[in-house]
Amino acid sequence: MKLFKSHNNVLPGFAPTLGYTVLYLSLVVLIPLSALVFKTAEMSWIDFVETVTAPRVLASYRVTFGAALAAASINAVFGVLVAWVLVRYRFPGKRLVDALVDLPFALPTAVAGITLSTVYSPNGWIGRILEPHGIKVAFTPLGIIVAMTFIGLPFVVRTVQPVIEELDTEIEEAAACLGANRWQTFRRVLFPLMTPSVLTGFALAFARAVGEYGSIIFIAGNMPMVSEITPLLIITKLEQYDYRGATAIATVMLVASFVMLLIVNLLQRWSRRYAA
């Protein structure tokens, strides 16, 4: 135990608190997650590959990752804009708007799902306006993008906002003194400083969108090959008692989310070095 104790630390309770932390973590998170790996290991490799590359499964990857990419891109653009407006400009009700940005974190996904599909359905508040122009959102892949944009909205805003707050106005003055116009200053000076945080927010929004289930299934239409997301396919397999199929696809999703977690960690390390 000596090895773990930092020298001269008089505070008590290290061994029991760390012990409990590791125990609880193992019981709640690590052992259950490893069940997924064990169950997958029961399958033969050929079986596994066949299951996770079946046409319907491949189509669900395309829908899920494609829509998540689109939604995260929308969030990257509007997230930077919202963060900029919230930090730099003054307007009435600003604090209210700032608080409201976190709504997608607080609103249960099922509620988001039913209200988004109502608002965007052909006779809903927004759907009614889009319908005459031939744009259908609810029950199409476009609806999936809308739901994913909703749930990913706070990520970019909340990662970029503190960076804009920390920006030193002196460098903007310097750029202006050196003859840059406002757009050049933003593009060449300010935006590069924001880039790591924008990418981090983008990756977080993307990762969240890929795994999302509740808010999407109500608006997606859930047509196999067209608008069926991978998490829904896992549930469909489970309901057909195809545990192996469900587990195999879930393993692919899990590996994908670990890769994204790694990328997010690297991005955060990069942005911290940038800030220092």
Partner: peptide
């Protein structure tokens, strides 16, 4: 340890349920 504690946030909710069924 910090990364492992954050793990449930990066797992799809559907998988979070599935592991207990398994």
């Amino acid at each position: 340890l910090l990364t492992l504690i954050d793990l449930p946030f990066s797992v799809s909710p559907v998988i979070s349920g599935l592991i207990y069924v398994l």
